[in-house]
Write a protein that binds this DNA or RNA. Structure first.
Lengths: 338, 338
DNA sequence: GGAATCAACTGAACCGGTTTAGTAGTAGAC
DNA sequence: GTCTACTACTAAACCGGTTCAGTTGATTCC
């Protein structure tokens, strides 16, 4: 079978302990001996067994990510694949791996976390899609597992957060529309139970207030295409219909734009539209979508790094803030109708 | 700390071995004793340590998936999230987990597989995006790791395959266009180094031949939006320009449709377009895209099951074939121009 | 020059399971 | 009434690492 530490010890004429010390850079072996052991290990092609390491050091050498979304929304969101790719770039440097769980059923999420931790699958978890008063925070505390949250939870959380200033993005979008002469700027919100759904709405409200406009044109949705259509229909039925709609994500914006056009409205002639995420397909819409570009890959990389630092005990406990989303102006926004 | 097998043995007044036998349903304990042990274990809340199990049984209780795509394409493809969700549903039933690696750099793919296997992270892997003469087949043989492939590789592969009859989908799309009176039906192909890229092209060729048409309108692309635009431009520049284009995926179709419209062409008035995948956003395009609906979640679930059966030694060695894609007719296809 | 200190190393215990070899007790065969 | 066969169990080895408690030999100190 594979070569073990005993084989190396035997070949180098030392004890197993010495090999272990040599490999891990611990004191207890002379430089000469260390070099000799390492050379023998290399010659023999020894790969320390992660399983054995894990058993004796009680570590999994893996991080966990539980994604709780319904499968249809999952496939449309460009966030996760890029986010995960970012995580991987950080993990690759440290011989850690990512254990991914997808919880589609409602109650499955908590079970996923419990299982990952109880089974010792992971040393820490990354918490995405943080909700208001998120029940996972106390859960993770109970499970005593280190974690990182994307954005800072509203309830007290002892875990470091890696945040993006989403407000800045929405503010930029609203200011762009105001500069184009829009006065009735609506917002189709994502699920308001999510921190990011709510913060985007609040940013919309505040930036309208800053421009001296009232924020009465809000329609609640849930980040899905169908929800985006329903919310758009609601807004366009109103007497004082908006001339611009700021959507909380690209999928709703895409669906909303399509719906508005099906009513015979021109985009952006009658209605300007902005999205959020800069999904690749948005530049191929008719018209191409003005949206907010984020960097999910960076977010993934930084989150994983913060978590790894925390595991290594070298995290400073500070939150990290990533650059704000960048406004990408395309043809779905234009001057307000006269 | 956590309760171990020794605690249970002590509490039940038996040896560790007896507890192990009882738990695993092996002979060597009387029914009475077995029940007593299981009760004690339950009362104590004993969870056998996966790490210890893994060490002694040399198993990881995990499957591996290596995704090798450039990050931008990753985010746009609805396939993977749903596919992974399907894998999870199968794994959840067996206390297995999924270890996901994303290889963005070119040479990283092989390293990922080696690392997963050498480190004993996984008991088997799922091979997606199978290429012609795929170097991963010999690699996995060398690593002696069980595997499942999505679609049957062209070179001999000892691994069971889970396949979708992609030809049937393309044939349905072509027949739909022929029925609409189209005679010049082009194909924008995905990467021809992929089994599925090539088989879609061949299906296009054969179904044209079946209708007595010649298949000279082929443009190579790579499944990306940019590639789709370039290929479309190529086709539309030709003297004998097509009246319909069958794309190998939705993203290229979306980009191609947008490009054609930017030239002033009407879809479907001047040009009919079909996609492949039925990504959710395609129903919100202008016009909504006629495309082929697949079931990636089912594919994931079945692939994982086949692999798990293989690990358990209960796989029959047969390939599995899933239902063919379903043609979803929307407004991007219409009668051929006069 | 003898005690104290330290570096360098060994042997064994340990992590928490599985598995093998061995033992006691019972039942059946003849 | 012994011999065999079998059940039900235990003790210990084992998986492959880490780590603790010693041991040895050289160095330092006074």
């Amino acid at each position: 079978m594979a070569v073990t530490i005993s084989d190396v010890a035997l070949a180098a004429g030392v004890s197993k302990g010495a090999v272990s010390y040599a490999l891990n850079g611990q004191p207890g072996v002379s430089p000469d001996t260390r070099d000799r052991i390492l050379k023998v290990a290399k010659d023999l092609g020894w790969k320390p067994s992660l399983r054995a390491k894990g058993l004796s050091s009680a570590k999994a050498y893996a991080l966990g990510l539980v994604v709780a979304r319904n499968p249809s929304l999952l496939g449309t969101d460009p966030f996760f694949p890029a986010f995960i790719a970012g995580i991987e770039t950080a993990l690759a440097e440290h011989d850690y791996t990512l254990v991914l769980s997808i919880a589609t059923a409602p109650g499955a999420e908590e079970r996923c976390y419990r299982k990952l931790v109880d089974n010792g699958r992971v040393d820490g978890v990354i918490l995405t899609d943080v909700r208001r008063n998120d029940s996972r925070i106390p859960l993770l505390l109970e499970l005593k597992v280190p974690a990182v949250t994307l954005n800072r939870p509203d309830t007290g959380s002892p875990f470091p957060a890696v945040s993006v200033d989403e407000s800045a993005g929405i503010v930029a979008a609203v200011e762009h529309l105001v500069a184009l002469g829009h006065r009735r700027i609506a917002h189709v919100g994502g699920g308001q139970e999510y921190i990011h759904g709510r913060s985007r709405r609040i940013a919309w409200e505040e930036s309208l207030a800053g421009a001296g406009l009232i924020s009465d044109l809000f329609a609640a949705a849930d980040f899905t295409a169908a929800g985006g259509v329903a919310a758009t229909a609601d807004l366009l039925r109103r007497a004082d219909r908006p001339t611009a709609i700021v959507y909380a994500n690209d999928l709703m914006a895409t669906a909303g734009q399509s719906y508005a056009q099906s009513l015979g409205l021109s985009v952006p002639g009658d209605l300007s539209i902005t999205g959020y995420d800069n999904a690749e397909f948005t530049q191929y819409l008719n018209p191409p979508l003005t949206t907010l570009a984020t960097d999910p890959m960076l977010w993934g990389r930084v989150s994983a790094r913060v978590l790894l630092n925390q595991l290594a005990g070298t995290h400073d406990g500070e939150d990290t803030t990533l650059p704000a989303p960048r406004l990408v102006v395309r043809a779905s926004t234009g001057p307000a109708p006269a």
